[in-house]
Design a protein around this nucleic acid. Structure first.
Lengths: 327, 327
DNA sequence: ATGAAAGCGCTAACAT
DNA sequence: ATGTTAGCGCTTTCAT
């Protein structure tokens, strides 16, 4: 069974494809009678428009790409789902691409998205360099960075207020009298990782405590991959009394190692993402995260503006707060 | 800056678009000299093929859709990522669509995928009815069900051996002397949920223990949404000594409630998915899951066969084992 | 080795 | 209210 085309419908009814096209697109210049005939035939014949043809002709696809470093990361997956649901409200499809935190894969994802003529791109960049955002600018395709942005290269983006997040995490520990943290942060080229550390350093400094850079331990942002480095760090670091982790899932891995290595000692762990707002876990989690789904709704709003008007000046940080989830 | 087309390249070099097309597609009937000129110009001008045009002309998109009920479910997200990575090896792009366990949204996802002329569809159906798979059959598009299949409607699928999984979960508890389980299963129209319960019932029966159907508590498969029903069930059910949960993330929520309501009592919880193979958690998890990424690799293999040859007889169940993750 | 031209399915401008 | 037609960017067949 070949796919049904406008031509098939037109031939069957003895009208032209232009007429059929107008009816199916709701352009109201066709008689009630013809309109009903066409609608009925289209339904019966199982017509589905060929969006390749539509796109080729009209230049619009009503599709956007979301390019993320790791779709298996539950925090990212949740953001992606929120964006998808929000875009659907505006009749957009979402094309999700995974880059594995790899710059070359990210480049290919961008090319693939452009080749598919997407109307816009949400990108959470791997941040190995600014090469790919420069490429996006050259392409002149509407794009918005989410969660991660570049200090050295200006773009539109919607992120969370990681600096404030770092301060909140630090403040929590300071108020409880802790002075010697270890920070397990993602690679130092990832802005959220360093912004959080900056916040941590600043709030401690304001309380006359110095956090040396050596307390920033670089880990892989991919969940569940850091057992060895965590274990080694916990073993060889002296005099730490608390831990701040880049993400909740990293914190979970750390809590596991702590239980294994220092059972008995109760060490506070503070982290980021507040995944407990949508998952439940049978243990405590202290985490800094956003309120609601503001990130995705703001990102979508900005994207639609960019697509429609070509313009939108958005460099926005979503506010965060500290949550104490006590199981 | 308008997008660069074959015509632009052809015009610039004074050759025809046919020549350029041949070079860029590696059809080797063009002189070295012209070939190099074309390749160079394409690179310099930043040519990206318009896949809408390619698809319109050739009928192939080298793109498949993955339609899943909940991309924010970490188990599903992990499967999707595996499929994406595996398909990429064969130069396919993957279009991910989320259905929210909703039949109408699933229908729209299928239409959207077809409209985009995908070469094939992986579908984890919401299973409210067989309507959408019947629709897929009418469409004559290659598709494979993953994780969930229909008893009443035959299709190709790759799933996990849920019946055996249920037996393994039951066996674990039986060996420890437990006799009174509660099973928190997903909606009864979801095959994996009932297959697991069947396995549980059978293995208990073989050990002369009857598990009444009233011990099958229906919950929402979406993570973190079942606090109330879990709490109510734990409160009002008498004489249970152990729990089997539909998925690890449901088990986590249950473990949390147990801690809250029956702290002190140590109740075993067994679940499915074995997410600890890629996430680490600071507490015990007893879970039945597959070995490696066999599900995605088998599904991809089957899909490529279907796309190429139109045929493939796959109704395959991936083997499972029981894991004891002790943090 | 390269050119010329048809046509994939559709939209949109124009004609009737 | 409906028909006609050009053309989006590309692949592919047939000529040269």
């Amino acid at each position: 069974m070949r796919k049904v085309t406008l031509k098939d419908i037109a031939n069957k009814l003895g009208v032209t494809i232009g007429t059929v096209s107008h009816v199916l697109n709701g352009i109201d210049d066709i008689s009630e009678e013809t309109k009903n005939k066409v609608l009925k035939a289209a339904r019966e014949m199982g017509y589905i428009s060929n969006s390749a043809a539509v796109s080729l002709r009209s230049g619009k696809t009503h599709t956007v790409a979301v390019i993320v470093p790791d779709i298996s990361n539950p925090y990212i997956a949740h953001q992606v789902k929120s964006i998808e649901m929000e875009m659907r409200k505006f009749n957009y499809s979402v094309f999700i691409l995974n880059t594995n935190e790899d710059e070359e894969t990210e480049y290919e994802a961008i090319v693939s998205a452009c080749s598919k003529q997407v109307d816009g791109i949400f990108l959470c960049p791997c941040q190995k360099s600014t090469k790919n955002v420069e490429f996006l600018d050259k392409l002149q395709i509407p794009y918005i960075l989410i969660c991660r942005y570049f200090n050295s290269y200006e773009t539109d983006y919607i992120g969370v207020d990681d600096y404030k997040g770092g301060r909140l995490a630090g403040e929590y520990l300071i108020n409880k009298g802790y002075k010697n943290i270890i920070y397990f942060g993602a690679y130092k080229y990832i802005c959220s990782s360093v912004d959080r550390f900056r916040g941590i350093k600043d709030i401690f400094k304001e309380n006359e405590i110095d956090i040396p850079d050596s307390r920033f331990i670089e880990i892989n942002p991919t969940c569940g991959d850091n057992g060895d480095i965590i274990e080694e760090t916990l073993r060889k670091t002296k005099d730490f009394d608390s831990i701040i982790a880049f993400s909740d899932f990293v914190a979970f891995e750390i809590r596991g190692k702590l239980k294994e290595l220092c059972s008995g000692v109760k060490l506070p762990v503070v982290s980021f993402d507040a995944v407990n707002t949508y998952f439940k876990f049978p243990f405590e989690n202290i985490s800094v995260g956003v309120v609601d789904n503001e990130l995705s709704s703001q990102a979508v709003k900005a994207m639609l503006e960019k697509i429609d008007s070509g313009k939108c000046d958005c460099k926005k940080l979503i506010d965060v707060k500290l949550y104490e989830f006590n199981c």
